[in-house]
């Protein structure tokens, strides 16, 4: 990183970084048991990529889990930029449930 990048008004730099689709962002994925997995991705990267990586990391099929941001399901085309996510934001994982049997 060059010296120049350290200079200037920090809040202004932060604003530029927020808008820059190539800037990276740290995202925490939390399961129902409180286990946390951290990812660093570009703000323009589709979150479906992160979902696939998470599923493979925990050894589950991606279709068997749901990812929520601020209580809403994350869609395939969503990106940190489109969801206006901030650094260190949390994504919650919910498992797919099924049922049919009579109790």
């Amino acid at each position: 990183m060059s010296d120049n990048e350290h200079g200037g008004n920090p809040s202004q730099d932060e604003g530029v970084k927020q808008e820059d689709p190539n800037a990276t962002i740290n995202i925490k994925v939390v399961s129902s048991t409180g286990e946390e997995v951290f990812f660093k991705i570009k703000r323009s990267t589709k979150l479906s990529k992160l979902q696939g990586a998470y599923a493979s990391k925990v050894g589950k099929d991606v279709s068997s889990i749901r990812f929520l941001y601020d209580g809403d399901r994350i869609q395939e085309d969503d990106t940190p930029l489109s969801l206006e996510m901030e650094d260190n934001d949390t994504i919650d994982v919910m498992v797919e449930q099924v049922g049919g049997r009579r109790l």
């Binding site: 449930q97 099924v98 049922g99 049919g100 049997r101 009579r102 109790l103």
Partner: peptide, 8 residues
């Protein structure tokens, strides 16, 4: 509500 991943 889902019960034991087998019943709604």
């Amino acid at each position: 509500f889902n019960i034991n991943d087998c019943h709604w």
